[in-house]
């Protein structure tokens, strides 16, 4: 549940960068620029996202669900704070499924690795706000998000110092000029990672990933992510659809950004516990944010 806050915004951030792309730059510069843009995007963001997960099968080189997908729908608001806007406040509210409707999560995260993140969960069935213990960010193991194939590690930002980068190839991919960049975790990072390396297909013009492949600690392909419906919103390229395919579990998850508003003014009071219990206040504020959807 804690991971709710990551998926809505960080994934958008991961899949979007500012429209102006640099040329002839090193792999690390590309990745650091993408990472920096993530923080800009999340500084005042409202989104409504749907995550669908299912077991899949392949037939004639086509992938499709072989069972009815599980669907989560949620709305989320975030704002960045601190030096270089590396601290964050996020709130997410579940809309679907009916059995989880109204569950809310408020989370404060800090760039300072020694400072514990703070989280509060509103359990609608109990009508109670509960503080959660989560530990410092350096202590966190990757966990699945809502039981989907997305994990917190898939959406992390601000960790570029923990990887080395190399451009493996460049050329045309699906009609776009791309760099294929290999990210290799440092030894320290490897201890808390599920991946031994990550390949990212980066659109050279838009600086947005088109594909990501994650390899397990035996070097085998573990997960594959495909980005689509890339749109320019307020000068930022955003992939509104992301599909992650887990080759081991034969399951996939698809995240669709139904609505998004960037650069919105987020009232400080909204990112407090009040939003979890004062429904009239929350709805009044969210209805104003919904009107700003681009």
């Amino acid at each position: 549940m804690k991971a709710i806050v990551f998926i809505l915004l960080n994934f958008l951030m991961y899949s979007c960068v500012h429209a102006q792309a640099p040329k002839n730059i090193e792999a690390r510069s590309i990745m650091e620029k993408m990472d920096k843009q993530q923080r800009l995007v999340s500084h005042g963001t409202f989104s409504r996202s749907q995550i669908s997960s299912c077991k899949f099968g392949t037939k004639n080189k086509k992938i499709s669900c072989v069972e009815t997908p599980r669907v989560k729908l949620m709305e989320s608001v975030s704002k960045q704070y601190g030096i270089n806007q590396k601290d964050g406040k996020h709130v997410s509210i579940l809309l679907e499924p009916a059995s989880e409707r109204g569950i809310g999560m408020l989370s404060y995260t800090y760039d300072d690795k020694t400072k514990d993140s703070e989280s509060w969960l509103y359990l609608s069935a109990l009508g109670k706000v509960k503080r959660l213990a989560s530990g410092a960010s350096q202590d966190q193991e990757p966990t699945a998000i809502f039981g989907s194939e997305f994990s917190t590690e898939d959406m992390e930002s601000g960790k570029t110092d923990e990887y080395s980068y190399k451009i493996l190839q460049q050329g045309a991919y699906k009609g776009r000029e791309v760099w294929v960049i290999e990210s290799t975790p440092t030894k320290e990072r490897l201890k808390k990672s599920h991946y031994s390396k990550i390949l990212v297909w980066v659109d050279q013009e838009r600086l947005v990933p088109l594909k990501v492949q994650n390899y397990d600690k035996y070097g085998k392909l573990y997960k594959k992510m495909v980005f689509s419906h890339v749109e320019n919103i307020k000068g930022f390229w955003i992939a509104k659809n992301v599909t992650i395919i887990n080759m081991k579990s034969q399951r996939l998850s698809h995240m669709k950004t139904q609505d998004i508003a960037l650069g919105v003014k987020v009232d400080e009071a909204f990112l407090t516990q009040r939003t979890l219990t004062d429904f009239a206040f929350r709805e009044k504020y969210l209805s104003q944010l919904r009107l700003q959807v681009q």
Partner: peptide, 28 residues
């Protein structure tokens, strides 16, 4: 050394082995 180094030698830009996503998800 056990890492899969094939990725560096294979054509990562080729789409011949790519699977096409074909699924309909419920629209809320």
């Amino acid at each position: 050394s056990s890492l899969n180094e094939e990725a560096q030698s294979e054509n990562l830009l080729s789409q011949t082995d790519e699977l096409e996503l074909e699924f309909e998800l419920p629209s809320n």
